[in-house]
Simulated assay, not measured.
Amino acid sequence: EEFDMLMNIHLKGVFFLTQALLPLINDSGRIINVSSGLARFSVPGSSAYAMMKGGVEVFTRYLAKELAGRRITANTVAPGAIATDFNGGHVRDDAEINRVVAGMTALGRAGVADDVGPMIASLLSDDNRWVNAQRIEVSGGMNI
């Protein structure tokens, strides 16, 4: 039941929402999907979620190729551990987990939402019109 819920949100939801919105996206538009650092490194207990995020990354590359005729770019932003409500707020609310994350991150801290938003905004700008089919990790250098 939990697997199906994750699948519906993190993979099927992305696929079917994109399918529904494609007729509304202008030519030369942008698609930005969200993955996770967990698609690059392994944390026990996260395999189902991580494989779905990996599927989003593959889907995004296919979108970039399939929508090239409309000049629509498709990229994936993959945040590292971000101090939000995600996963019960553990990174944000548990000082020990936050400390562990900071120790695994080159920049020495867990991320915050304001670390991810500017990357997404930059991908939406015309300045990045040539960025396509990329996975861009926004993690402060987590697990490098």
Rank of each mutant, 00 (worst) to 15 (best):
M5F: 13
M7S: 13
N8H: 09
I9A: 07
K12Q: 10
G13V: 01
V14E: 04
V14F: 04
N26F: 10
D27P: 08
S35R: 02
S35H: 03
S35I: 02
F41D: 10
F41C: 08
S42P: 02
G45P: 00
G45M: 00
S47W: 04
A48D: 06
M51L: 11
M51I: 13
M51Y: 07
M52D: 02
V56Y: 12
V56H: 12
F59A: 02
R61A: 13
K65C: 11
E66G: 03
A68I: 01
R70S: 07
R71W: 03
I72Y: 00
T73D: 03
N75M: 03
A78T: 09
A78N: 11
A81R: 01
A83K: 10
T84H: 05
N87T: 08
G88F: 12
G89V: 10
G89H: 11
R92A: 14
A95W: 09
E96V: 11
R99W: 00
V100Y: 02
A102Q: 04
M104A: 07
G108P: 06
R109Y: 10
D115S: 06
D115C: 09
P118C: 00
L123N: 08
R129I: 07
R135K: 15
R135F: 12
I136V: 13
I136L: 15
E137Y: 14
V138E: 14
G140E: 11
N143E: 09
I144W: 09
